[in-house]
Design a protein around this nucleic acid. Sequence first.
DNA 1: TCTGGGGTCCTAGGACCC
DNA 2: TCTGGGGTCCTAGGACCC
Length: 423
Amino acid sequence: MPVFALVDCNNFYVSCERVFKPELEHRPVIVLSNNDGCAVARSNEAKALGITMGAPFFKIRHLIDLHDVQVFSSNYALYGDMSSRVMQTLSVFAPAMEIYSIDEAFLNLDRLAFTSLSAYGRQIRHTVRQHTGIPVCIGMAPSKTLAKVAARIAKKSEKAGGVLDLTDPRFQDRALEITPVADVWGVGRQYARYLQMRGIRTARNLRDADIDWFRKKMGINGVRIQKELQGESCYDMETDDPAKKSISVSRSFKTPVTDFDSLSEAVSTYISRGAEKLRAQGSHAEAMTVYVTTNRFKPDAFYYNAATQSFPAALNHTPSLITHGRTALKQIFQKGRAYTKAGVIFSHLTRNGMYQQDLFDTSDRSRPDRVMETVDLINHKMGANTVTCPATGIRKDRSWETAFNYRSPAYTTDWNQLLTVGS
DNA sequence: TCTGGGGTCCTAGGACCC
DNA sequence: TCTGGGGTCCTAGGACCC
């Protein structure tokens, strides 16, 4: 029988902030999304106040003032670095590990001889806490979906103490009974509504339901979810990190943008970032989509438009992509609108160096490639945006830039922002 | 006034071919 | 009125995940 362990960091972004500010323990804390838009991480105390996942900041302001909730902007440099520390700590506990997201990993524990899986789980939990300061919960089970169920209960239940072993089928019935169907991995809002309407309210109902009628609705995934709940593993460990099939960069603006030039600066900035990501994974793009939108919460005036450029020869050269980006933007820009967001998506990515040459393209590509390589190197060493294209804007006041009004220091990735102890 | 960002997979349907 | 069959490839849209 396979044994999957899912290790899940508790309220990860909040926990990262707490590592460097221990006085935040036991107090309500939230971390906001980009542009300080929504609450995307909440401490247990903040959850208890009724602050929901994704709640818009302006709608919970009263709660924040009333209960003195501590607020942070997203600090991805910090969270990314803390994540690698957690993953590195975990990696010694199992022969195979799959990093599933910034705050979750699956460990493969088959064929390890244990007297007690739970005791091993507690040891992992203790070690991660000691090495990184991050609290985690762990669920073990014969399938990934059941391991998810186990981890969720481990997090919620006082009795579990952060670790739950569900490998024994005798315990699975009860666990699935207390798991709402909406909390099953792979069941989102739409499917949950559909299932509930038909009397499937718990994970156990779903496991035991007649298969055919929802197979039609949910397709092959529905079948897999059900098998996984029955203890039959359908999703293997994915231990290597496959190249991305698309790369996108998008941001909401601090304040709405009405003029073409500002919008073009924003789009050029996102293209630069996206091109960096392309080069980092050794890819070229055969197509690029540029899109702009106005405020989607004002449906009567909502505007979304996108233009896709296809390239005869795949590209990852920033200045060329920016030129194409301007052309695309001209096609979709309409005067008199207040844009709140723009983005760019690179697709049809080619593998390492395997890009189609244009039949009529006789230029030497090695020179522009070397330029980009050097730019990436400088920006990596000296900090992002040390060298940029002028098209991304040279003015100081860029109204479209993203707001981070409550950002904590990059404690672990910038010498100038190290934590100081004492005074 | 103020509402995130980056991905994946699956399916249906159209275009096209013989 | 009635109008093949089967296969592949591609795309758009919808669902999901964190």
